[in-house]
Design a protein around this nucleic acid. Structure first.
Ligand code: FES
Ligand code: FES
Lengths: 169, 169
DNA sequence: GATTAATAGGACCGCATCCGTACTGTATGT
DNA sequence: ACATACAGTACGGATGCGGTCCTATTAATC
């Protein structure tokens, strides 16, 4: 049977995926290091036009600082520890909106009667906040396991907890 | 300047969005209630073909039970408290894979040299687990605030914590 | 000053895919 | 028998992502 969707949905764009790889690569060389688009493309084995396009966007969004002219290149605008995952996503994919409806008010004619709008707004904010705990320096950390406890969940044990327990079974 | 992407990315499909609305509507009437596709379409003010398509998918994925023939309709296969958000998403949009690369091994030729693959796998699992804490009954809960603490994060205070603090500033 | 190297900005098009609809078949109650 | 309602599939349009290319601008070097 068909699947309603499932390939491109609830997924970061390839541009963003690559963008994070590029940022990680730059950050690995040190916060102040300078890299030309060609160097980054060679070392990451990604096509140069794509790399160039992404780095230009990241610069425009304030995550990279560019140095034009010969011997130019890109360097981190802020330290890797100050760059969070949602900043990377927002820079390339735009603001995080898990659903089209529940995001910006006025987008859906059924707002008044819709009962799931508000919960989704909370979920959206929660996911974004969860991702905001992760910085670029965490992504390039060579000690595996450092991220594991970063996104552990603290659920307060009220009646909903038991429901969630059953739901996971 | 152009934006690399930003409209359809990192976003649930409309089908899934509607699907959750439909499930919430059915769940609101009680776990055992029976609803025809037409009734649900009328009450949610969504086009009947779309509603029908979504309900069929949800049935095939085991979230709804169908009753064919006259006086037929759909009812919840499991209790609303046992249906989690990732189950809804997976049923309509397929498995949750935030990135194409880091998800299934073998999809990317740069796996060996890629340093962000493993972190992203952890992030993906963490987001999915976070969403799994939310059940359908939570979404239809009339008492706002019940979801807020559900996705609070517990960060263990090691050196990374301070980095995250700075990153949010 | 000429040259080279590198980024800035935008235009362009192919192609995948999401969205909504339509159609036929099957089961069930009256 | 008939009406009702779900099952499964096929189809076309529109949208937007993806990758590439081109020109202008800036800066270092000789
Ligand atoms: S806000 Fe659009 S359906 Fe809920
Ligand atoms: S796994 Fe594909 S670039 Fe990291």
């Amino acid at each position: 049977m068909w699947k309603a969707s499932g390939v491109n949905v609830f997924r970061l764009s390839r541009i963003t995926d690559y963008g994070i790889v590029l940022m990680a690569h730059i950050a690995e060389q040190g916060d102040g290091s300078l890299h030309s688009a060609r160097d980054v493309a060679d070392q990451t084995e990604l096509p140069l036009p794509v790399v160039s396009k992404i780095l230009k966007s990241l610069t425009r969004e304030g995550l990279l600082r560019s140095h034009r002219g010969s011997k130019g290149g890109y360097s981190l605008e802020r330290s890797a520890a100050e760059i969070t995952v949602p900043q990377l996503i927002t820079a390339l994919d735009g603001p995080i909106h898990l659903t089209e409806c529940a995001s910006h008010s006025g987008a859906c004619a059924k707002e008044a009667s819709c009962h799931v709008r508000e919960p989704w707004q909370r979920i959206n904010a929660a996911v974004e906040e969860a991702l905001a705990r992760i910085t670029l320096s965490d992504l390039i950390s060579t000690t595996p396991g450092s991220i594991v406890p970063l996104i552990s969940l603290g659920v307060d044990t009220r009646e909903l907890d038991t429901a969630a327990e059953k739901g996971r079974g």
